[in-house]
């Protein structure tokens, strides 16, 4: 069932916010799909990376509810392949930041078992907290 959307000023506001925070000119995306095809996490994602670009361009704040940005591990595979030299890892980061700055943590430290916490490499723990907590 097709959703009918209206393109309003607030849509552009959202686009501008993400553009500014990520430093990436999202309107440059030509929707070639290179990023999605190469993304190691794409099969886990509910919205493909390229589609995120599209929805942000359309100012659809619904992308904030997608899992995609949390799955993006900043592996930079798309970054080195995008024919328009866009850095999607930065767009994911910007989306995460919008959420996290609203003081919503994606990860709860209490959920990690002691045994697991001991064996995990420190860099992974620090890294994941940087990405998942506000």
């Amino acid at each position: 069932m097709a959703q009918i959307i209206k393109l309003k000023d607030k849509n552009t506001d959202f686009l501008e916010k993400i553009t500014e925070l990520s430093g990436e000119q999202i309107t440059l995306c030509e929707q070639c799909g290179t990023c999605s095809a190469g993304c190691p996490f794409v099969s886990e994602m509910d919205i493909n990376p390229s589609q995120i670009m599209r929805l942000v361009m359309l100012g659809q704040e619904s992308v904030m509810d997608s899992k995609t940005m949390w799955l993006c591990a900043s592996c930079f595979t798309c970054t080195v392949r995008c024919p328009r030299k866009l850095d999607l890892s930065k767009v994911s980061e910007a989306l995460r930041q919008v959420k996290l700055r609203g003081a919503i943590d994606e990860i709860d430290i209490k959920e990690i078992s002691d045994e697991e916490a001991l064996k995990l490499p420190t860099i992974a723990v620090v890294g994941s907290f940087r990405k998942f907590t506000g």
Binding site: F41, C75, T77, I112, V125, G127, S128
Partner: peptide
């Protein structure tokens, strides 16, 4: 040079 899953190992080990 395929990603190993990186820090997802903390809370999304399935991936």
């Amino acid at each position: 040079s395929r990603c190993c899953g990186s820090y997802h190992t903390v809370n999304n080990v399935e991936i």
